[in-house]
């Protein structure tokens, strides 16, 4: 496909996905380079507030790269370079006056493999609250930790062993602990990078249920390899392919009647 045709396709994608309300996150012409290799091409994407947006696409399509642009996790990679604008709540997060630490406190992240700190369950959740100075007293801290664990649907399973190491939990519980850790600092946005890929179906179902309930308070962007999962949990779906945003729109439409042939091939499991 020629570059011209692609550009045309992208404008179409944007037009189709125009949300009714002002988007919380807006990406404009985002290009990402790893050294000489370009990983993302002119991504334009509006993420509506308090909805779940899923990013799907084959491995290496750039969906995780895009996700990690949103909390500038890519800054950690020396050879990674980002151009274009990403605004969150109207503020370009790549502006020089943006403190990346403050940004990450507002844009939480949950990773592919559950990665609790090798500390107690309590400490795992309390850490972010403490370093960000969100609590003034021990009592307040305890309340906030319990609130986060409740929101993450973990409190019933761990209330009597908050001092047990986080790593002693099962995989699914660990992942929910990581979610609790992320929501404890009350971010605006939660990024999830294939949060269920290491979990069994029951644990996955719990996380999906959790994502659904978190939608009331947070804007969630989830990268997933499971199209069924994207279809189940998200309201908006973006399909990435070879570094391009191919199609973006309401999840219902993407999974029943996608407009791009590449999307169709990918989600129906044909070679594409």
């Amino acid at each position: 496909m020629s570059a011209y045709a692609l550009q045309e396709a992208d404008t179409e994608v944007m037009a189709a996905a125009k949300p009714e309300t002002e988007p919380l996150i807006a990406a404009r012409n985002v290009n990402v380079f790893y050294g000489d290799k370009q990983a993302l091409f002119d991504i334009c994407l509006d993420v509506p507030e308090k909805q779940v947006t899923s990013l799907i696409g084959p491995s290496g399509c750039g969906k995780t790269t895009f996700l990690r642009c949103l909390n500038r996790m890519n800054d950690l990679i020396d050879i990674c370079r980002v151009t274009g604008d990403i605004t969150i709540g109207g503020k370009n997060i790549y502006d020089p006056d943006v403190d990346v630490v403050a940004l990450r406190a507002q844009v939480g992240m949950v990773f592919q493999k559950p990665n609790p700190f090798p500390k107690s369950i309590f400490e795992n959740v309390a850490y972010g609250l403490r370093i960000n100075g969100l609590v003034d007293s021990k009592g307040e801290l305890k309340d906030a930790v319990e609130r986060a664990l409740t929101q993450a649907g973990l409190i019933d399973e761990v209330h009597d062993r908050l001092e047990a190491p986080g790593t002693s939990l099962s995989g699914g519980q660990q992942q929910r602990l990581c979610i609790a850790r992320a929501i404890a600092v009350e971010p605006k946005v939660i990024l999830m990078d294939e949060p269920c890929s290491a979990l069994d179906p029951i644990a996955t179902a719990r996380i999906e249920e959790l994502i659904d309930s978190l939608r009331e308070k947070f804007t969630i962007i989830i990268v997933t390899h499971s199209m069924q999962q994207a279809a189940r949990v998200s309201q908006q779906t973006a399909f990435f392919h070879l570094g391009y945003l191919v199609e973006y729109g309401a999840t219902d439409t993407i999974f029943t009647a996608p407009s791009d042939e590449r999307t169709e091939s990918y989600i129906t499991g044909r070679i594409g």
């Binding site: 996790m73 939480g108 990773f111 850490y127 370093i131 850790r181 600092v185």
Partner: peptide, 11 residues
């Protein structure tokens, strides 16, 4: 992953 976890909560 430990570094990422810490950075992601704003450390």
């Amino acid at each position: 992953s430990i570094r990422e976890a810490a950075l992601a909560v704003g450390a």
